[in-house]
Every structure is written in structure tokens, then in C-alpha cells.
């Protein structure tokens, strides 16, 4: 079953001649030329052995393959052109006269060209500007989030001396309708000696209404109203005492209760937190 496959690929022109060594004979090309002995040549070729590019023998799964490639000199049929038959070029081709197209006034043209380039810049810049600003708008809060960002409270529904807890952005907000005595008490305190010194007038827009974030500044518990040693709020987690103005008086909390941004609309009796 042993097969010996001989695969030969050759391109032969009619006038090819092959040497005894199997190398095609090309009169104009000395294939057996030795490389230059200047150190750049690699190896030498032997005249008695076909060059590797001309013939190879390999052993593959299909058997023993011997490949011989011939490349013969092309033998195209050319006809020599005779000098005497070529027509003499008498004249160069006529180049059209462009002077008609030249602008009589180049100043106007120059200004106009600059104007057009400038307009291109103007339009591109204004488009780039609106692209960037539109992109930045997409980063702001969406309309449904903004709609929830404000909370309205009817002040009329809170009697004097009462606490109301409302939810605003997921956090409790204390609203206290303070009595006259409580306001007096809040103002009486010597606030400069407190841990987080802050005057009561700086914490309210209207002394009757105290609006604070109901988050203990210590570790974020929700303080209990109308409790503690100072008649204000008391945090049950770690025992921070806040007074009637929401200022820290005793306990681990470092600062006073935070004041959110809010608007008091006294005419309509409305409080808008946010």
C-alpha cells in the first residue's frame, strides 16, 4: 500500500532549457552565482545540487513528495519600435487660459473666505456648546426624583407645643410649634459656652417654628421628642440630650441637630421642606 506521490508544479515557457542538475537554464540569470564573500552573504550554493527553491523532497502523511518547480524565462513576442515611425510632437497641448477666472478684487474674496470659515466655527461652537450642556443636563436628577424632593406641610394642623415628624428624602424631619415659654427658654441659654455654639435665632426662620433633620449627629439614630434633661430631644441609642433649640447639651453627639433648607409661607400657612 505504500504510495510514492510525486507532485510537480512547473511553469514552462516554450523556450525553456534545463540543465542536467535540474536547474532551469536562464541565459540572463546566473542561478549558481556564489554570494559575495564580504560577510553579508549566507552560505554558498553548490553547482552540482539543485537549489532548495527549485526542488525539494519532503516526507508527509501522504507519502514521499518530491516537488520540482521550474520558472522559465518569459518569452513574450515583442516588436521593436522604430524611431522613424514615431510621429514628431510638434506642439505642446494647449493649456487653457485661466485668467478669466481670476477675481478682480481679491480683498473682498479674502474677507468673504474668512467670514465663511468663521461662520463654520460659529455654528460648530454653538452646536458643541449645546451638546455639552444637554449632556450635562442628563446628569442632573430626573423629574420624578425632583418631584419628591420637596415636601409640603400644613402649618395650621400643628397645634402649639406639638411635634410633627415628616418624611423628606427618606429622612425624618422634626417640626415643632414652640410655645412662647419655650422660645424664651431657647434664647435664655448662654449659647456661647455650649459644645457647638449657635444662637437660637440662627437656627430658625420664625422662632415659633423649629424645623430640623431628625437624625442624631452621633451615629444617626432618631431622637425622641419632649424628652431628655433639657426639655428637647433625647437620643435613646447613646444618650445624647438636645435642648428645645436642637442644640447638643450632653452625651456623645458632637454637633447640633441639622437644619434642612426650607421655606415658610406664613400667608398660606405652608412649610415647604427642600
Amino acid at each position: 500500500m505504500a504510495t510514492l506521490a510525486a507532485k510537480k508544479a512547473f511553469t514552462i515557457a516554450p523556450t525553456v532549457r534545463t540543465l542536467a542538475s535540474g536547474v532551469p537554464h536562464a541565459p540572463a540569470l546566473n542561478l549558481a552565482a556564489k554570494p559575495l564573500a564580504d560577510g553579508h552573504g549566507h552560505g554558498t550554493s553548490r553547482a552540482d545540487k539543485p537549489s532548495a527553491w527549485a526542488s525539494s523532497t519532503t516526507l508527509s502523511s501522504a507519502g514521499l513528495v518530491s516537488r520540482t518547480a521550474f520558472t522559465a524565462r518569459p518569452t513574450g513576442h515583442f516588436q521593436q519600435r522604430l524611431l522613424s515611425t514615431s510621429a514628431a510632437v510638434k506642439d505642446a497641448p494647449q493649456v487653457p487660459d485661466f485668467s478669466h477666472y481670476r477675481a478682480p478684487n481679491t480683498d473682498k474674496n479674502r474677507t468673504f473666505s474668512y467670514f465663511m470659515v468663521g461662520s463654520l466655527g460659529v455654528l460648530s461652537a454653538s452646536m458643541a456648546k449645546s451638546s455639552v450642556s444637554e449632556f450635562l443636563v442628563t446628569m442632573s436628577a430626573s423629574a420624578d426624583v425632583l418631584a419628591l424632593a420637596k415636601v409640603e406641610v400644613e402649618l395650621g394642623s400643628i397645634p402649639e407645643g406639638k411635634n410633627v415628624i415628616i418624611k423628606w428624602r427618606g429622612k425624618p424631619v422634626f417640626v415643632r410649634h414652640r410655645t412662647a415659654s419655650e422660645i424664651e427658654e431657647a434664647n435664655r441659654e448662654d449659647w456661647k459656652s455650649l459644645r457647638d455654639p449657635e444662637a437660637d435665632s440662627a437656627r430658625v426662620k420664625n422662632p415659633e417654628w423649629l424645623v430640623m433633620l431628625g437624625v442624631c449627629t452621633h451615629l444617626g439614630c432618631v431622637p425622641i421628642g419632649e424628652a431628655g434633661d433639657y426639655g428637647g430631644w433625647f437620643c435613646p441609642c447613646h444618650g445624647s440630650h438636645y435642648d428645645i433649640s436642637g442644640r447638643i447639651r450632653k452625651g456623645p453627639a458632637p454637633t447640633n441637630l441639622e437644619i434642612p433648607t426650607y421655606d415658610l409661607n406664613e400667608a398660606e400657612g405652608k412649610l415647604v421642606v427642600g
Binding site: M1, A2, L4, I12, P50, S55, F70
Partner: peptide, 28 residues
């Protein structure tokens, strides 16, 4: 010319191996 070249060609295919095992495996 082609037939002459072909006559010249087989000179390079004469390499043969004593063992035929390689050929038989590809045959199976």
C-alpha cells in the same frame, strides 16, 4: 519543451526510504 522538462523532472523524485511504514499508515 514540457515533455523535455518532465523527463528532466523525475531526477529529483528518486529519493526512497528503505522502510515503508510511513506510507502504510497514511494508506490505512
Amino acid at each position: 519543451a514540457a515533455s523535455r522538462a518532465m523527463k528532466a523532472g523525475p531526477r529529483t523524485t528518486t529519493a526512497r526510504f528503505a522502510s515503508s511504514s510511513a506510507g502504510s499508515s497514511s494508506g490505512s
